[in-house]
């Protein structure tokens, strides 16, 4: 690991001012990605600014009935919070299926959204990777790509986004609150994650030093009937091969509202809007679910080893929908 300097920020304002003014400084929150990346040499800051003492770790109910998750709230605390459990069960499920208990105690919500991809070509310093070294190529295209993405890919990058929590949050239309040198702003969740396109090195539409201070969850009754299904080789402590976060509202057997996120198969937390549209007004049953999944995966681009993910993503989505539909049956969500 290269050497670097360290400082500990005392308040949000000075932290943001400090890092914004210094392109060689980076934030250090839970460290579960940052320390790993430092050790791999993928990030090479002159200094890390430890923000763990900043007062942005609270989980609060908002006046409008929404819920605010502090940027430094730990995954474990958010997952266990009674309001989150009750109103957004898929968020709790997604969080608790991520990583391990130890890592969830460390990782912050902001850090979870900012985590880097697990592509081994990105992590390994001397292999072609456009994300790590723009213009160097993508060794994953014809390499060992079993875990890579089939949605949202480009010829420049096929790395799958690793977060579970973000899959649930995108389905919720959460809002990300950022603090920059110019003050506060908000970004819609889906807009916060950029597709790789021809610039996979750019992952978020934010400036250097902008800090995630909070993630706001909107009032969303349908989210009370929601579920996160994660498929992976082993039962625990592994990233998703495919996952689906589903919230479903039905009335008299007809879908009134569907919110779906897909994970493990896309280059960003994937909002399955085509599937949602296909479902709207349909009868909540296997045929509509299958149609919706087909619609969402219609443009999927499989590679050498990950072809199974197209079908697996569909089945995961259908299974999650079926599970939630069973819960809503006989009443409104």
């Amino acid at each position: 690991m290269r050497s670097f300097a360290y400082s500990r920020a005392a308040d949000v304002e000075s932290a943001v001012a400090d890092v914004s003014a210094d392109p060689t400084s980076e934030y250090l929150a839970g460290g579960t990605t940052e320390v790993d990346m430092l050790r791999l040499g993928v990030v090479r800051p002159r200094r890390v600014v430890d923000i763990n003492d900043l007062p942005i770790a609270a989980i609060e109910e908002l006046p409008d009935g929404g819920t605010r998750l502090g940027g430094l709230a730990r995954m474990s605390d958010v997952a266990a919070h009674p309001v989150v459990r009750e109103r957004y069960p898929m968020v709790t499920e997604a969080l608790e299926k991520g990583a391990s208990a130890q890592l969830r105690n460390m990782a912050s919500m902001g850090g979870n959204l900012m985590q880097r991809v697990r592509c081994s070509y990105f992590r390994d310093g001397d292999r072609a990777c456009n994300k790590r070294e723009p213009g160097s190529g993508c060794a994953a295209l014809d390499g060992v790509n079993r875990t890579h993405a089939v949605l949202g890919t480009s010829e420049h990058c096929i790395a799958a986004h690793p977060s579970d929590a973000a899959v649930a949050l995108t389905a919720l239309d959460a809002v990300i609150r950022l603090r920059g040198p110019e003050g506060e702003r908000t970004v819609a969740f889906d807009d916060f994650f950029l597709l790789p396109g021809d610039a996979p090195e750019r992952e978020h539409p934010i400036g250097h030093g902008e800090l995630i201070t909070a993630i706001d969850l909107p009032v969303l009754p349908v989210a009370r009937t929601s579920h996160y299904l994660k498929v992976r080789d082993r039962e625990s402590y592994e990233f998703a091969l495919a996952s689906a976060a589903v919230a479903l509202g039905t009335e008299g057997g007809t879908v009134t509202e569907a919110r779906i996120g897909l994970g493990g198969v896309a280059t960003k937390p994937w909002r399955a809007r085509r599937a949602e549209q296909a479902l709207a007004g349909s009868e909540a049953g296997p045929e509509a679910f299958a149609r919706a999944a087909d619609a969402e995966l219609a443009d999927a681009v499989p590679r050498g080893m990950n072809g199974f993910k197209v079908e697996l993503a569909k089945r995961t989505m259908v299974r999650a929908l079926t599970e939630v539909a069973a819960r809503t049956r006989g009443g409104t969500a």
């Binding site: 360290y6 250090l28 579960t32 320390v35 430890d50 763990n52 208990a101 130890q102 105690n105 460390m106």
Partner: peptide, 19 residues
Amino acid sequence: CTVWVDGHRVLACLTLAVA
């Protein structure tokens, strides 16, 4: 490498000592 920091179990390999 699991240890407790302030009573919570964490991974010491991904924690900076100075922090």
